[in-house]
């Protein structure tokens, strides 16, 4: 299976104003921070709200989901002793809120799926996307991932000792995938593997017959932010490397103790 990567964007790269990315004021007002973060990144990656109609599937991935809303509803439930609760945080707390809100914003009736599987949620969504493109079920897919770090999770994970060895972080990244090479295509994904064991750099180079030029990027180094779907942001960074002239980038993701995954991206020549 091979697929082509078109436009993509990380949350850090978003330039447009929130109002233009999420024009519906009512929707925008009810969105929590992470939902705004993810939806705005998705719309920016597509190049505008009108483009949402042009994708035939929306795939999202998140390890933690909409934490702030879950926390808020849980907090209210406990402090208000289960009485007269505001439903909005409950409504917005479901893991597929971002996928649903993008569909709602762009009146998109297509396939809409959400993977919530720790460190390889993004790769699971990518696998689904690549199968859909290979089967001809989709021609153009919006794929993305998001995770937020709330003060509560920061505190809990601090107590778990996470931040002694990792950088705190959060983020969102979205991209379009197509089955065929198009004018906007910038890279292709030629390999997506779910490994059963860890591999060293030398083992990766020999197993995937990589040239000396191939860059290997890990998603769980000490210097990079630590959150479940950082691999999606790393993926967009790899695309940027290819845009700047790299021929091949291998992403190796062993985030959160899961079995490692391998994604191999290539320039289009």
């Amino acid at each position: 299976m091979v697929c082509y990567v078109g436009k993509c964007c990380t949350h850090g790269e978003v330039q447009s104003e929130l109002k233009s990315l999420i024009p519906d004021a009512g929707l925008r007002r009810r969105m929590s921070r992470v939902v705004k973060m993810a939806v705005s990144t998705a719309v920016e990656s597509l190049g505008g709200v009108a483009e949402i109609e042009q994708v035939d599937a929306i795939l999202t991935a998140t390890g933690w989901g909409c934490l702030a809303d879950s926390e808020k509803f849980l907090h209210n439930l406990i402090t208000e002793q289960e009485q007269l609760l505001n439903p909005t945080p409950f409504i917005q707390s479901t893991f597929n809120t971002v996928g649903g809100q993008i569909a709602l914003l762009g009146h998109n009736h297509g396939y809409n799926m959400t993977y919530v599987n720790r460190g390889h949620s993004f790769e699971d969504a990518l696998l689904d996307g690549m199968m859909r493109l290979a089967d001809g079920e989709s021609k153009r897919i919006l794929l993305g991932a998001f995770d937020e770090l709330t003060p509560t999770v920061e505190r809990i994970t601090e107590r778990m000792g996470w931040w002694r060895n990792h950088q705190k972080g959060e983020g969102a990244a979205f991209m379009t995938l197509t089955a065929e090479r198009e004018a906007e295509s910038v890279a292709r994904v030629v390999k997506l593997d779910f490994l059963r064991e860890e591999l060293s750099e030398a083992e990766l180079r020999s197993r995937y017959a990589l040239s000396e030029e191939t860059m290997i990027r890990c998603c769980d180094e000490k210097e990079v932010p630590f959150y479940p779907t950082f691999a999606a942001t790393r993926f967009v960074e790899a695309v940027r490397c290819i845009e700047k002239g790299a021929k091949e980038v291998l992403l190796y993701n062993k985030c959160m103790g899961d079995n490692p995954t391998v994604m191999l991206l290539q320039w289009l020549g």
Binding site: G63, W64, G65, T94, F95, N96, G99, N112, M113, T114, Y115, V116, N117, R118, H120, S121, D124, F194, R196
Partner: peptide
């Protein structure tokens, strides 16, 4: 707390060693 935790527990106790994932669309 996270959705994948239940998937991993089930896979471990049932000896499921192949690909596994978790879907959450309400």
């Amino acid at each position: 707390h996270d959705c994948a935790a239940s998937t991993e527990v089930i896979a471990t106790y049932c000896g499921i060693k192949g690909y596994r994932t978790t879907i959450s669309t309400a």
